[in-house]
Design a protein around this nucleic acid. Sequence first.
DNA 1: CTAAATACCTGATGGC
DNA 2: TGCCATCAGGTATTTA
Length: 270
Amino acid sequence: MPELPEVETTLRGISPYLLNKKIKSVQVRQRQLRWPVPKALSDIKDLKVTSLTRRGKYIVAGTKIGSIITHLGMSGSLRIIKAPLELRKHDHVIFELGSNTYLVYHDPRRFGTVLWTTEAAELHPLLRKLGPEPLSNDFNGDTLFRHSRKKKVAVKNFIMNGHIVVGVGNIYASEALFRSSIRPGKAAGRVTAAAYNTLSDNIKSVLSDSIKSGGTTLKDFVNSKGEPGYFQQTLNVYGREGKPCRQCASPIKQKTIGQRSTFYCSNCQN
DNA sequence: CTAAATACCTGATGGC
DNA sequence: TGCCATCAGGTATTTA
């Protein structure tokens, strides 16, 4: 489900209910997620959330004594609900926030994570080696160019590698490459410095455009209020196999690259 | 070191 | 209606 825009949309939605608020208690109903939910999380009682940030697709809630690190995986969501509690199947972790308010972690496929760490969150093994934030000034064409030399991996897989740049998932990788007129299967090491400048600009633009639309809802993404995003209306290639390219009307092609479904226009992208 | 395959899990969908 | 195969927005880990 969620790529960076969807995680950012979620973060903004839950922030008013979570930041500078106390977590009164935590109920874990399903411990087996991508990694087991730590037992220490269940011990939380009246703990104030003093910071709420996003790192890649991870959401980090900081407190005086440690941090909660969450990832929505493929099918996760966080939603705010009010008492009386109406829980659904796959509501795995419930954070009681007071004022009859609860934050619910929901994840049918359980590829996501809810972790607790007492070290600085940015030093956690999952976060420590992550690449730059795509919307920051630390990320640019030069970043991509330098890391890509002599790499044979497809440029699409390359930009989806979180150690190179975080937050670019399967949808936005295809979209950014279309905006940049680059074939997704092209070897990363053969993409020019100029093309990487264009590509980094378009990664930034496609992600920020999507955030403005509240994210992309293909199947089941909903924000913290249960509402869908609207960016799917703007997608140029993703999920549009056989439909006319919006630029040149040639049929959009679909191909599997790195085990993932990939979409492109064979006329516009070289 | 790189690149590709594998693993985790449920649910929706389509063919027969 | 049932059953099976296929696919799905992620990414750490294992294998080659």
